[in-house]
Write a protein that binds this DNA or RNA. Structure first.
Lengths: 251, 251
DNA sequence: GAGTGGTCTAGACCACTCA
DNA sequence: GAGTGGTCTAGACCACTCC
């Protein structure tokens, strides 16, 4: 039934399937469906929300990606267990991640300088050695105590830059990129491993030199798939990097 | 145009959108489209493959999840850069992961015993303390050298078990679960951090005691979302855990 | 066999990008 | 304004699960 009468309002709203997804997610999170309890069938949902079955399926697929529910062919659609729902597969900024875990994020900016790309960083960012970059070193805090070091090399569009004050006000680098520089990170490539704390790292993080640290290297790509950041991170052992992996690739 | 004449063959084949996805993926991997080069428009692809536009969109969405291509509203659909394509977001077994990276995987089974669940493991697997579990300790090798320790607690369906010989023949625990026990892992919850090697770990991995190790804890859920395994892993610093994160969750 | 999700179609209109 | 992807519909049939 297209072309009813509320075309004006429609434009300003979210797509139907997203609104439906939000509704279903609320119902699940508020406990209307307990872990592994079946939701109404797709055709039923379509009827009760007066949308097409395809729109229902889009909503369900969205929530499936987010780990909120899952569908089994021939069996039905079910609410995911809480442990799965809480594990977001998408990366948050340090700030958002900390907030979600109920902690208070903080940072101390150790350095913010214009530098020339050395060969290693230039290669990772697909630039010429010597290209102008912004280097940002930060100590990240959780509830006031240091938990990690982040060492970023940023490739900003010509003429753009970041001021220290600006970053201190925003708290989150990624928020700043999106909101102030119109740079939209779309994808990250990460490599995690273990390493031993050097003298300087140990001092900043307040652990003995040689302590084990979680090392994470990340390349961030813009929405046009251009590298905009290379970041080396070091986290103390109490810091946990959590992730969810689905749709097993066996077979 | 439904109901042509090849209904019999259709049944044995993959869905149309998967076949189309496979075709497009091949074309991209064979270099027909270089990094960030545009693919034909959806309507064009639909016409040239004689399928509906919706089927094309399903194929594109599948490849987008896998990092093979990406679509931008109003701009087009583009081949993803190689670095992105190579980073699978889905978990492979240690065996498959090693093979993909061009290495030779191996294992030494250190122990395979029936045990009773202690309170910690019981709670993680949603069982009663004392429930019967299978504990499996393995040293994982890459090209003949030890790179990791895996310590698993398995909750198998009553009456089922795993024999050492069986696992040695298969190489991969997950393959064995799927192929021999009809257990289908569908989702994993992982937590990564850094830790220092204990005496025993150090000895097995061939590193000094106190060396930094990458620690990974994992809960594996079956297709019915029942916990089937809890696994503690320790990897030497040269081992890299790689992942890709997309669809940034900011905003 | 009844009920469920999975695939596929054909067509319409909207929202965005870029020249 | 022409071209692109994004949303939505209504209906058909297939594949799977479970009684």
């Amino acid at each position: 039934m297209p072309n009813t009468s509320d075309d004006k309002r429609r434009a300003a709203e979210m797509p139907l399937y997203r609104r439906l997804a939000a509704t279903l997610q609320q119902e699940i999170e508020r406990g209307r469906y307990t872990a592994n309890a079946p939701l109404p069938a797709e055709r039923e949902l379509a009827a009760s929300f007066s949308v097409s079955r395809d729109t229902v399926r889009k909503a369900i697929r969205l929530l499936e990606e987010q780990g909120v529910l899952y569908s089994d062919h021939g069996r039905g659609t079910f609410a995911a267990p809480e442990a799965v729902r809480q594990m977001s597969r998408f990366l948050d900024s340090f700030t958002d991640d900390a907030l979600k875990r109920g902690g208070v994020p903080g940072q101390r900016i150790l350095g913010l300088d214009a530098v020339a790309a050395d060969m290693a960083v230039a290669s990772l960012l697909h630039l010429e050695a010597g290209a102008p970059l912004l280097r940002l070193r930060r100590l990240r805090l959780l509830n006031g105590t240091p938990v990690g070091l982040q060492d970023s090399w940023l490739h900003l569009p010509a003429g753009q830059t970041i001021r220290r004050q600006q970053l201190e006000a925003k708290g989150s680098l990624y928020r700043l990129l999106v909101e102030d520089l119109d740079l939209h990170p779309s994808e990250c490539l990460e490599s995690l491993s273990a390493t031993a704390a050097g003298e300087d790292e140990a001092g900043l993080l307040g652990v003995p030199a040689g302590s084990p640290l979680l090392a994470c290297e990340r390349i961030t790509l813009s929405d046009r798939r251009q590298p905009i950041e290379y970041c080396e991170m070091r986290y103390v052992p109490s810091y946990r990097y959590k992730t969810r992996i689905n749709k097993w690739s066996l077979g």
